[in-house]
Simulated scan of single mutants.
Amino acid sequence: MNYMNAYEDLRNVPAYYDYSLSFNRDESILEILKNIQMHEVVEMLNRYPQQSYFEFKELLGLSHPKMTVVLGSGSEDLIWRINNFILRNKKVGVILPTFYRIYQTLQEPCFINIPYDIDNEVLDICSLRKAIDEGKYEAVWITNPNPITGKGFYASELLNVIEANKDTLFIVDEASVDSVMDIDRFSMLNSGYYLKNLVVIKTFSKFYGLPGMRLGYVAISDELADCLENWGQVFPVSSFSIYMAKKILEHKKIFMDIRKKINQNRDLMTSLLNSSSTVVPYKSLTNTLVIGGRSTQYNLWQILKGKGILSFSLDEEKGMLFSNCVRITIHSGKESFDYLYNGIKELLCELEGNNRVYSVNM
């Protein structure tokens, strides 16, 4: 489902707070942007982006000296290029649910349903291993953690599967991983970037809260990197976007604090939802949380909308196990989270049919 366009008219209405898209909102990011030096911006804009690309790749390579990097105009640009220039005419498995643009830009995707437990944020690697053995795929798309359910595979277990299937190309989209508290246990970037049959996609849109910057990158083998760069745009990313990304990466402490706030806020929201008999939260690793209504007598998306909360309805999402579910995004910003928390608390009281006061302290 195209959740970029689905509620666009509603997003422009001041009465609604938008929690349907999965990028973060936080006042701290604005403080970083206030320190931008105009003379540096002018200098960046007064040259072709190629030099900026080289400097940015060097910056990323400080942590991963053997990593080959290809830049893109957001992860969506890279997804399109991978599907059209690397995976064309191949048998490609796609783990569901997932970001809709992954399967929409493939010729004939083979959908793979991996069972999940709503009370466990970690996915069963045995189910994935079995699906790959049975499917005989030439390539497999995995979003890890999952952008819909917030659940993920351990990187170490995923690494074993990838190493055991050297003739299969694995594309792992890590758009959601930066909000995971124990990120090193789930990200493939540190443990598997050297594998020739692994592509890892990263973005600045979600966790960093800058989707308009349009900057993503892939860690990829030299051979596949040449394919993407030869068939891509000459300059897919502006010098200004590179400048912004470099500024962001200078403030690691701020984003460590943002990650902690996201996880604290998600745990608070999960505790609140668990105290109700009318809804059920799906345990999540990330900044998104699925909520399921225990009854079909009401439409959860509609009643949240009535509270000014714009969520993402999952009723049409491929790979969901249950109906009457929505996904909300947990922001680290105080104002945004407080509005969401208080609105859902009020809604739960109404659904319970009483004036119950929930004993969850913020």
Rank of each mutant, 00 (worst) to 15 (best):
Y358K: 08
T105D: 10
C110K: 13
G209F: 01
T68N: 15
L340E: 04
P145S: 09
F255E: 01
S284N: 05
E138C: 08
S176G: 05
L340F: 01
E121A: 14
F207M: 10
R81N: 13
I86P: 01
E40W: 01
F337W: 02
Y154I: 06
S176H: 07
S20M: 05
D18C: 08
N361W: 09
V41E: 04
Y3R: 10
E352R: 07
I183Y: 05
N197Q: 10
D338S: 15
D119G: 02
L268K: 11
I220N: 01
C227L: 09
L159Q: 10
G72W: 02
R214F: 10
T278Q: 14
K345W: 05
G61K: 14
K66C: 09
V218T: 12
I125W: 00
S22V: 03
L189Q: 03
H39E: 15
E223Y: 11
V360Y: 05
Y194G: 00
T143F: 00
I220L: 10
H39I: 11
E316Y: 13
I142S: 07
P97R: 04
Q50T: 13
S295M: 07
R294C: 11
F207Y: 13
E352K: 06
G212Y: 12
E76L: 13
S28H: 09
I142H: 04
K136Q: 13
H331C: 11
L106I: 06
T329I: 02
K136D: 13
G216H: 05
L30A: 12
G343S: 15
C126D: 11
K91F: 09
G93P: 00
F99Y: 14
G293I: 03
